[in-house]
Amino acid sequence: MAATLSVWLAAFLTLGVFSWMYKENPWFHFAENMYIGASLGHLAVTGFQNLKEIAVGPLVNENKYYMLIPILLGMLLFSRWTDKYAWMSRASMGFLVGTTAAVVMMGAIRAQLIQQVVATMMPLTSINNVIFVVLTIAATTYFLFTMRNKSAQKVMDLGKYVLMVAFGATFGNTVMSRISLFTGRAQFLLFQWLKIGQ
């Protein structure tokens, strides 16, 4: 019974969202607001659960008093809502930004910089490799904004076209994603809700 109700509710909301294609209407706005509300509700519950399991639980049950520090830092973030005490959130923000940068930096330098540069150093023994290296250099050169040399300008122009081709490929992939999203919803409506096909 619960499964049937959830399928009907999902179908009602899906069709409500699709009704926007005809024109904006209350059905669409209801579905949109339901989605926002449900997402926020889920986020709130997940956040509360995290707080309970990771911070408050160890503090109360395992006497890990050092958990008071992150709890206090987290609470200080809410001071941003007031003009008078907003300065108190700077410590929390600084801690967040600093630790995130440190965590990301460890992996980024190795995985995203060094490994990628090494991968570009390929033997120029095949036409594919030559094209790959030349176009990578051209695309990277495009971002040298302080250079005004005429010969470098030609490389930059080539880089610009390389970037356009890359953006075109990204656009094509995005179209594929959006069609897949719609196909998935259509499969749900046909196979699970109306039970026709497949």
Binding site: Q116, V118, A119, T170, N173, T174, M176, S177
Partner: peptide, 25 residues
């Protein structure tokens, strides 16, 4: 997902990933 292919493809091409499939296709 297909829209993420261009983000992750360089890691497959560099050999950092041994397998990579994209989207519904």
């Amino acid at each position: 997902v297909a829209s993420g292919a261009s983000t992750m493809a360089p890691f497959y091409q560099s050999g950092q990933m041994c397998g990579f499939i994209v989207g519904m296709a």
